[in-house]
């Protein structure tokens, strides 16, 4: 029997309206989500990648019952996010992160006590639960300090502590490491991984490629309110033309040279971009047949030619997909 998806959306749309002017009101409509279909398996980490303004936060807010969709359906744990929001709220956690969202003038422990009460965590368990999450995010030492004295990374940890305090079955993390220093970001990623082993389904949005690659077995790429691709990292590499990438740099290439490269075995795609005074050709390769030497040989007469091989990164995949969508 196929398990019920932890998260499922069908044709989800959301349009925002903004008004300006007093006597002559001007209404601007922005389609933040344009028919999103997605299903996420339980007890996994699912990554949603996308540039700023792609609709990631809107999507997360709808799934976490903070925003009503304009159209379509969304369910979490098999329950509709609009009709069953009261059932869902104690079972889901949301970490929006950033500098806001905490009571800065009081300490971390009192912040957590407040939310523990709002989530109905049994009084006899409350203090132990708070200690446990503080320890888990590494904030025990600063628990009695005012939040306004916290660094950005500490605030982010406190956001996560609040998000997991009531032991949700699904946790939404919106850009959890944005603005963090490398050490804090690494600790946060480690924490996220440990949550999955506890049986939590994690839905993570990010625009850090390496983070998605490191944490998420499955990734969807969102652009302009649509899911433009959804697969494993390897699957996405294949989707944009291959696992291998060759880059050739020189002071300009002629069209016939590009055509020669395109004819090499296994070359699925060539992207040309200006790079200072130089031009860079990026070749996606589906097979092992073409080597850097073959590319060198296909481009005679360039004194400053450099060719290098690397693995197609998730960033390549992401940029290809997002740029394709933009076109």
């Amino acid at each position: 029997m196929t398990p019920i998806p932890a998260i499922e959306t069908r044709g989800l749309t959301r349009t925002f309206e903004s008004r300006k002017g007093f006597l002559f009101r001007e209404v601007t409509r922005t389609e933040a989500l344009r028919g999103v279909d997605l299903a996420v398996a339980p007890e996994s980490i699912f990554g949603l990648l996308g540039p700023n303004g792609a609709g990631k936060t809107t999507f997360v807010k709808i799934l976490s019952t903070l925003l009503l969709p304009t159209g379509g359906k969304a369910s979490v744990l098999g329950h509709d996010v609009v009709d069953d929001s009261a059932w869902l709220r104690p079972r889901i956690g949301l970490v929006l992160g950033g500098e806001r969202g905490l009571y800065n003038r009081i300490n971390a422990r009192d912040n957590l006590r407040y939310f523990a009460d709002l989530y109905g965590i049994p009084t006899r368990e409350r203090e132990a639960r708070i200690e446990s999450v503080l320890e888990r995010v590494g904030l025990t030492w600063a628990a009695d300090r005012r939040v306004e004295e916290y660094s950005r990374g500490m605030k982010q940890k406190l956001h996560i502590a609040r998000g997991i305090l009531h032991r949700p079955q699904v946790l939404f993390l919106d850009e959890p490491t944005i603005g963090l220093d490398p050490k804090s970001a690494r600790e946060t990623r480690k924490l996220v991984r440990s949550l999955v082993s506890d049986g939590v389904t994690i839905f993570l949005t990010t625009h850090y490629m390496f983070e998605a690659e490191e944490l998420c077995p499955e990734i969807a790429v969102m652009s302009k309110g649509r899911i433009v691709a959804r697969d494993t990292v390897a699957g996405l590499r294949h989707l944009v033309g291959g696992d291998r990438t060759l880059e050739a740099e020189a002071y300009g290439f002629e069209d016939r040279e590009v055509a020669t490269l395109r004819a090499l075995p296994g070359v699925s795609k060539i992207v040309s971009e200006e790079y200072g005074p130089k031009t860079r050709l990026t070749l996606r390769l589906r097979s092992l047949e073409t080597t850097p030497d073959d590319v060198q040989a296909a481009l005679p007469g360039h004194t400053e030619l450099s060719v290098r091989e690397r693995r197609t990164s998730l960033e390549d995949v992401y940029l290809d997909l997002v740029e394709e969508e933009a076109r």
């Binding site: 989530y119 109905g120 032991r167 939590v200």
Partner: peptide
């Protein structure tokens, strides 16, 4: 860690928590 069962929400407890928070914020400012 995730729990299938959720505790009942006490409205009076939530109101007390909100009152307590208001006092703490008052004292802090």
């Amino acid at each position: 860690m995730a729990t299938a069962d959720v505790p009942a929400i006490s409205r009076s407890r939530a109101t007390r928590a909100s009152l307590r928070l208001a006092v703490l914020m008052f004292m802090a400012d």
